[in-house]
Design a protein around this nucleic acid. Sequence first.
DNA 1: GATGAATGAGTGTTCATTCAT
DNA 2: CATGAATGAACACTCATTCAT
Lengths: 192, 192, 192, 192
Amino acid sequence: MAKTQTRRKDTSQRIQDTALELFLEHGYEKTSLREIAERLDVTKAALYYHFKTKEDIVLSLLDRLGTSFDELIAWAEGEPPTLETRRELLRRLNEVLADGASLFRFLQENQAALRDMRPGEDFKERMKSLGGLMADPEADMVGCIRSVSALFTVYFGGFALTDMEGTMEEKRAALLQVADEMLTAAHARETG
Amino acid sequence: MAKTQTRRKDTSQRIQDTALELFLEHGYEKTSLREIAERLDVTKAALYYHFKTKEDIVLSLLDRLGTSFDELIAWAEGEPPTLETRRELLRRLNEVLADGASLFRFLQENQAALRDMRPGEDFKERMKSLGGLMADPEADMVGCIRSVSALFTVYFGGFALTDMEGTMEEKRAALLQVADEMLTAAHARETG
Amino acid sequence: MAKTQTRRKDTSQRIQDTALELFLEHGYEKTSLREIAERLDVTKAALYYHFKTKEDIVLSLLDRLGTSFDELIAWAEGEPPTLETRRELLRRLNEVLADGASLFRFLQENQAALRDMRPGEDFKERMKSLGGLMADPEADMVGCIRSVSALFTVYFGGFALTDMEGTMEEKRAALLQVADEMLTAAHARETG
Amino acid sequence: MAKTQTRRKDTSQRIQDTALELFLEHGYEKTSLREIAERLDVTKAALYYHFKTKEDIVLSLLDRLGTSFDELIAWAEGEPPTLETRRELLRRLNEVLADGASLFRFLQENQAALRDMRPGEDFKERMKSLGGLMADPEADMVGCIRSVSALFTVYFGGFALTDMEGTMEEKRAALLQVADEMLTAAHARETG
DNA sequence: GATGAATGAGTGTTCATTCAT
DNA sequence: CATGAATGAACACTCATTCAT
């Protein structure tokens, strides 16, 4: 009795979900508001009641991600720049990526479309920060790349290994392990 | 008197160049044929004299890339699957990437837009082939990933390190060196 | 304790005021109910509690004007058609115009928009009546125009002299004086 | 054989004509490009081949008017500021108004809609210039208004006397005559 | 008295594409 | 080789309006 429409959740939420779904299917630009509305069985105008523009929908989607990312960076900046911190950073990054997998895929596949929207820029910035946190400040170019490569493994591996056999959990675990090895090896060279 | 229009190169070529230029600036979907035509100072209809559709322009651009890639794969498949082959493969891939840098960036940033065009599919396929050639057929998941990570480093490093200081040549060389180390280390473990 | 909300006047009144304000700023067609509601800090639906349609708001605004106008005409029709009556008519018209200045400006600037609404038609009608009352019934075309021109001066002068220096009161007084002269001169010719 | 389509004149011209026709019938805002296109039996997109925006259509319409007006002002500014000049100015203005009658009516009835477009502003400016040229620079407010009223008669009389009996030519002639009298009378007082 | 959610019909505008010349 | 003129389909977005609560 508490709710008249048990299934309907929040409409804004449903719009976000369906939008992401379609953005992943056909890409951001090729997904029209008409399609989103039709799949939700509401009118286009209803979308505009909940979001000011199409861009707004995507912004609302990426908000969640941005926050997780920022927290991750904030945490790492508060820790001493040791190997241990970096290993933990990789571990946590892996979790964030796993949680927001489809959003990250959307981000990755639609870079051109999102480029001149706020969060396109923002995520570039954040990746740079992460990169900076991975490498020893005194490392030379090769040294830097050794560490940053670990980040690539965790980050791009998630997209690139879609067709590899095995569950996503297994693959993520394996990627993390390899990245961890890389980080450790890089550290050994540096201090060796 | 040999040529009436010394400067004009081939018009088809100029269209391709300008198109790529604009695709990189604003993305494939947001670049209209009108824009391309205007920047070339011809009419839209003129483009249709040289290319059947907008998609055709992008296909013609990616043709060159596809060929290099296929040759690379064909070469590697003809060699014994040794560490040395894989190191050479990485070296050659690096060259192909350097040569077609802007095309690869275009490919990377417009995945969603190109997804349901021929070459989108094709390049996915080719990347899988390359992945397969990098890893020992008997390696387990982690083993595979160790080798494939070297590929990630060379491939994604090119995009991700744009803002890093240093010339692109230096960075590519460093990426290749690190990837080579990774490959060697992976091999050592495997045979270790 | 007599009123719970001392400041709020009547909401209907506030809607009318804000609507007129916005109609004058951007014009009737370009003013949306959303804007009116936002400036009043209520919802669009609230407007519909007080007025049946957007047109209704404008009708309610012009009602006051229409009445003054009709009274003016009724008065003049009850008087003998002498010069003195016409001079007084001009004087009274000037007052009505001064009182409803912003409404008249609205009417004037939005003729096209109001054309197929009731009051658009009505005001045209009323202006014709006024015109008829100004001129001697036996006057020829030029004679008519001499008298009606006095009316133009009072009526259009109010809009056209906005940027002239001086207060609105001064300008209105001057306009009335000139119109009065015109009327008298016209009469002199007629009876001369 | 010279022309394949004898009747078609210039399409741009036909668009302008039809647009003005409809703007006068329903007002600028209430006339949609769909309507214009339908009445011309072309597609909306065809309009966009000839004019960049809806606003552009109206600008192109008013261009002609603006020029006549500017020439008129330029002429008057080059003459000595005598009564004779002003009488001639009125005569010429009357002609310009007669020629562009429907455009002026459009301008007059759609002030609100045109307000924040270029020519809305421009025409206000031009009317002020004309006003300045009518009156003696040394005249006081009432003196000014006496002269400017002559201008009102010619200008607004054209719109206000639509329903009066008589041909438009007759009415325009009568309006001009009365305005001329007013000017002369005003001058007499000034120099009297 | 007023709101939150939604609708249906429209708007101006842009796009890839075509074709006679 | 290339253009001028046009099209059909779509798009993002806005509006006045409704109605259950």
